[in-house]
Design a protein around this nucleic acid. Sequence first.
RNA 1: GGCGUCGUGGCCAAGCGGUAAGGCAAGGGUCUGCAAAACCCUCAUCAGGGGUUCAAAUCCCCUCGACGCCUCCA
Length: 465
Amino acid sequence: MLKIYNTLTRKTEEFQTLEPNLVKMYICGVTVYNDAHVGHAMSALVFDIIRRYLEYRGYAVKHVMNYTDVDDKIINRAKQLSEDPLKLSQRYIEEYAKELANLNILPATSNPQVSKTMPLIIQFIEGLIQKEHAYAAFNGDVYFSVTSDKDYGKLSARKLDDMQAGARIEVGEAKDHPMDFALWKAAKPGEISWDSPWGKGRPGWHIECSAMNLAELGEQIDIHGGGNDLIFPHHENEIAQTESYTGKEFSRYWVHNGMLQLGGEKMSKSLGNIVSIKEFLSKREADVMRMLVLNGTYRAPLLFNDETLDAAEKNVERLKSALRPASSSASGLSPESVTYLASTAESAQTNFTEAMDNDFNTAGAMAALFELTKAINTSRDNGATDDQLKPAQAAFRGLANILGLKLEEKQGSSEKDAQVNALIAERNEARKQKQWARSDEIRDQLKELGVTIEDSKDGTTWRWG
RNA sequence: GGCGUCGUGGCCAAGCGGUAAGGCAAGGGUCUGCAAAACCCUCAUCAGGGGUUCAAAUCCCCUCGACGCCUCCA
């Protein structure tokens, strides 16, 4: 039985969907105004893994991830570049989608955008005004009234009084209450804007998600997710808006991933300690980033540094070793050993599911994969044939797929392969003559080309990487 | 200052009341001309202090420490 930690209740709860076999999941995407960084990748990976596991567990998943394409930062950036803001954001949307694909992240089932949801956003705000949860101020802004929502603060577990104690709240003079937040912002001269009953303007940050949620998934959803830095104010405000509007419980489970840490600090655009996804992928393969996430707990801070990345890379290499073919001199495994391998494969699958059922305990799931890796490699060393290896390897591949690991051996072009093979042949000849110096020279040369070779009593094998 | 999450071997990290998974690193060994890979073996009593319990890394309290949010943020 699947259990999920729910930020709203601060407890791990049994997962039950609103409708049988269907999961409605909304993930807060990114504001598109510059290159996405590996922190965004972490979040996207976490929810990709969750989505893949839910599908493995037999659910159809409606996975909605929005793009915030109307926002102050986009407007500023566009001004800097003298570019149309919507064109700018569209460019980054396309780029982000590509980055996600490069990370082997499944595309969401839909990607709504603020700029395309305007009528519903306006309708939503009107509804909130009618129900007296919001008010239009003299300056053309519309604010949500936090005091009109009796359980405001329930997600982030804070009280209005406590928050007011903090000195950092800017008191807008148009607001009735300092914590009231903007649903609609009046346009400044020259800014991109939309017509509304309150004059030209654009939506506040939070209302867009409430509206897109409603449009894509309806009044109630199963999972709402995002980084834990969104708990307050973003998700708190979404709950306030949506529940005030519909009168129903908004999302059953609130799922938040921890922050990626770079040098002991959260990686974020405002701190400037950023490694872009592009930069990362130019140095390491996508599986490494995924492995980094899998080795940890999605809710905890994740350390991103050379040490943790090197370890993740080694982990990936180790998993790949399970998929390698039998040795060419394989003489076959004893029936007992075949049985043992089969039973290990079976228990690996059981352990895997048990771990993942426990709030997506990917680190536990990885342990199951590593145990199966060891069993497969031991069998190979003991002379298992490809046919004997195949069932366990298929099971292994199945589990890796659920986690979205590709575990592909690197590929070279056919000309390069030919070049390598020629060098290997030359080296084999040298080895036959016991010309070790020449043989090692060729090995170094191959290493330069990015080729790893392995000698065994059956001959020499090689691979890229 | 308020709220929250957390502190397990050199590093990353499971564990959710019954006596410490897994990976990396390290050391020893098998194999090899050497190397690499693979395989075998070795490697912690859970920040500190109280308490509850037959039994605690696991529950409660205190102390210390880290991180996050309270302002844009995945």
